[in-house]
Design a binder for these strands. Structure first.
Lengths: 195, 195
DNA sequence: TTAATATTGAACACAGTGTTCAATAACAGT
DNA sequence: ACTGTTATTGAACACTGTGTTCAATATTAA
């Protein structure tokens, strides 16, 4: 509606991003943010109740972009069906797009907040896959898959995103019980398997 | 050496434990802690440089107890070899001993600090198992196993420790690629397998 | 142009931090 | 029990950052 609002909001988000890649979240003050954003103090508090509120908003924004349906970045709104593998790869590529901010958030007190939202979207994705395995409860299995993925992402970020999304995806699927049909001596795995 | 030192340290740790199960870490002030511990303000700062320093110390203390060699709780110092399964179960039982504090820490900003130390001990444990699987790099696999375990623990804490350590251990081993020899149609798994 | 609304920045009260210091208490060793 | 050493105490202090208020100003949509 009012262009001033989105303009200010964007300025604050950008300032936050700039600062979070350089400094620890705890060391950043509201004053720092509004200096960087070139925005009045009271303006900041009209948009966000707290520094933490800003962090939360930034995380939600990030996670929503990461999980936005494939095809959103192009012109077509797609309700197509994708394989689990494709979805995973897509998420990894979007994480790569926001490399630095994510690294900054994960290295600071922002970590649990980001992971909380990331997890909830991820669990939702996994639930849609309708996975089952042996006598392990579905809820346990779902948590295992979502959790493993999160851990892999954190490891990836820690390694400064060395290793390609393709490698990560292959290894990840390989290591999951439901997705690898390793009948022949645990040596091979089946990819592209739409579960 | 001086009994006053450990007495004060214990008083502060106990106060911290009492508060962390009731309140969010961020809402607890140094003043709260020294009131609860019945200790002078300057005394606190002689022991810890910061509230965060205390948190860190408490986490290290906790994790060290959790990973203390099996048999330490009895009189015998044991350098015996235990199976991976036994080690896991042991850790789960020790987590149960510290149920409330751990739940409190994991629910607050203490989470990443606790998990950091927990992870480093866990990775060390996994490395000692000398695991390998298919064409997945060892470093990836080790992170996957340690990470999965951490996620399972967090899930467990979230569920208020419903489910027995025995169940968790069985499911966990079942879901790991290296530990389950699921040749016969992914239906069964081998336990008690010393890898 | 206008009425509505967003921004500004200085001023403010407030809460919590970490330090200092001189007085006091508790300690270990003899 | 005595003594030199060391830990504890609590009040006072300067300091940093928070979140609010308000009247003046600027920008917006229509």
């Amino acid at each position: 509606m009012d262009r001033r609002i989105e303009k200010t909001r964007k300025a604050i988000f950008d300032a936050f991003d700039t600062l979070i890649v350089k400094f620890d979240y705890a060391k950043i003050s509201v004053q720092n943010i509004i200096n960087e954003a070139k925005v009045g103090r009271s303006t900041f508090y009209l948009h966000f109740t707290t520094k933490n509120d800003l962090l939360r908003a930034r995380c939600i924004d990030l996670v929503e972009r990461i999980f936005a349906p494939i095809g959103t970045e192009t012109t077509h709104a797609s309700s197509m069906k994708f394989t689990f593998e494709e979805k995973i790869m897509h998420i990894l590529y979007r994480l790569l797009d926001n490399k630095n901010v994510i690294k900054g958030i994960l290295a600071s007190e922002g970590r649990p907040i980001f992971l909380q939202y990331f997890r909830s979207y991820l669990v939702n994705t996994v639930e849609n896959e309708d996975v089952h395995f042996a006598e392990v409860p579905d809820i346990f299995l779902e948590n295992h898959i979502a959790g493993s993925f999160i851990e892999m992402v954190c490891w990836w970020v820690n390694c400064d995103f060395s290793e390609s999304p393709e490698n990560l995806t292959r290894w990840f699927l390989c290591v999951l019980p439901t997705l690898s049909t390793n009948i022949n001596d645990n040596k091979h795995l089946t990819l592209n398997k739409n579960i």
